[in-house]
């Protein structure tokens, strides 16, 4: 079967950051999360802050390690569509 132009071979470094750079970034953010989770931060910003960090980490893994940055956009749509539904369900679940 022929490969579409979108299905490009991913270089070993996968972009400017490189796999090692992405790993270091993820490790740093995780260390920050654990530290803040241990010492505790203001309740009012806690949820939003940790959710943003979590989405950032998940996005980095998907973009660089799963190669969604360079692969067909269809794969990204396939992953994001149910994730949006998950977000909606979570909001509904969060309402008492």
């Amino acid at each position: 079967m022929s490969q579409a132009p979108q299905e490009r071979e991913h270089s070993a470094s996968s972009g400017r950051l490189g796999y090692g750079g992405v790993f270091l970034l993820l490790a740093l953010v995780t260390a920050l999360e654990v530290w803040l989770g241990s010492v505790g931060v203001l309740r009012s910003v806690r949820t939003a802050f940790f959710l943003v960090l979590s989405l950032f980490k998940a996005g980095m893994v998907a973009a660089y390690y799963m190669h969604l940055r360079t692969d067909s956009r269809l794969y990204a749509y396939i992953l994001v569509a149910p994730a949006i539904l998950l977000f909606v369900f979570s909001i509904i679940a969060a309402v008492p």
Partner: peptide
């Protein structure tokens, strides 16, 4: 779609896993 069927199948499986 010009996409590898095995890879597309895995992505669809992962979508079901998201749910």
């Amino acid at each position: 779609l010009g996409l590898n069927h095995v890879k597309l199948g895995m992505w669809l499986f992962l979508a079901s896993e998201v749910m």
